[in-house]
Design a protein around this nucleic acid. Structure first.
Length: 306
DNA sequence: CGACTTTGACCGGCGC
DNA sequence: GCGCCGGTCAAAGTCG
């Protein structure tokens, strides 16, 4: 039980032929502003995942949420665990009309291959073996630590989407049953242990699966001057020359963005949830014009004309 | 020269 | 025990 793991998988449905004035997808219709919260909160564990699902108009136990996952990625996060093993393979997939969440709180099987070969020949007289064991135990304990995980799918030509944070790639692996590799990134900020994995669905090569793990313990760094929200406002309000902001997007997509509540982007509330999770979510959703929501989200709906 | 990417090797977990 | 696999390390390479 300590390894309880809950993965939310955001499978953002794809716009393809949707338009701003088109009716939102059914799940969006179910969007309940009262359950609106930032993904930051989610990653901080202050929001239960059912609520998160609800916020996206999904029944928390809805198989729809996950059905598309297996359909669209070779091996997405273990979304099936969300509903206590609710089977996912029996549900007809509707990959274009569902939002799939995936988020995990337990690193149990994560970080499997670690405890690297540390040559560390130093201090052999300082209880080398002992400290080694100690080290292992320590790392084992660390391994058990819950790491919030958040994954989503994005339709994009670029694998590594800008999210305001700075990442260093530390690995790349071929994905089994997929021609596309999986890339591993780590937040470059010191003492920040947030990682992210990026892979492309081989079943839908236009889909990028991004998995965030951990929580940022720092503001959005450097290059992004000013507050994150300000940055987003600017870059989103003036999307046209792609170079105007630190965030660049592929040109071929339609976008509609929502700026999450200020709390979500204030420096007092910094989570792993990357700023552009919003973007991802909404660059594929046409978010309806909810009056209530607008109260919460003053500036929303940005669209880049093709 | 520092920051970042690439890439082969390594390690631990897991299934057989 | 063995092999496969996912994840990570770290040296070498690249870039600005």
């Amino acid at each position: 039980m300590s390894n309880e793991r809950r993965d939310f998988y955001y499978h953002t449905p794809f716009l393809e032929d949707r338009h701003l004035d088109a009716k939102p997808p059914p799940s969006i219709h179910g969007f309940d502003p009262s359950s609106y919260m930032s993904l930051t909160e989610c990653l901080h564990g202050s929001v239960d995942y059912n609520s998160l699902a609800k916020a996206f108009g999904l029944s928390p136990s809805s198989s729809e949420v996950f059905s598309s996952i297996d359909e669209n990625s070779s091996k997405p996060v273990e979304a099936r665990d969300l509903d206590g093993g609710n089977s996912t393979d029996q549900i007809p997939a509707t990959p274009n009309s569902s939002v799939s969440f995936s988020s995990s709180e337990a690193g149990g099987d994560e970080d499997s291959g670690k405890t690297k070969k540390e040559p560390q020949p130093e201090n052999p007289e300082d209880g080398g073996e002992y400290s080694n064991k100690k080290d292992k135990a320590k790392k084992k304990a660390e391994k058990r630590q819950k790491e919030p995980r958040f994954a989503f799918m994005t339709k994009s030509e670029v694998d590594h989407l800008e999210d305001g944070y700075r990442w260093r790639k530390y690995g790349q692996k071929a994905v089994k049953n997929s021609p596309y590799p999986r890339s591993y990134y780590r937040c470059t900020t010191q003492k920040c242990t947030v990682k992210k994995r990026v892979e492309r669905s081989f079943q839908d090569p236009s889909t990028v699966i991004t998995t965030y793990e951990g929580q940022h313990n720092h503001p959005i760094p450097t290059t992004l001057r000013g507050s994150a929200s300000a940055m987003f406002s600017h870059s989103m309000l003036a999307p046209t020359p792609m170079s105007t902001g630190p965030i660049s997007f592929p040109h071929h997509q339609e976008y509609s963005f929502v700026q999450f509540p200020a709390a979500a982007t204030s420096h007092q509330n910094i989570g792993a949830y990357p700023q552009n999770v919003n973007q991802h979510l909404h660059q594929q959703y046409q978010v309806p014009d909810y009056g209530l929501l607008q109260d919460i989200v003053p500036s929303m709906f940005f669209r880049q004309e093709p």
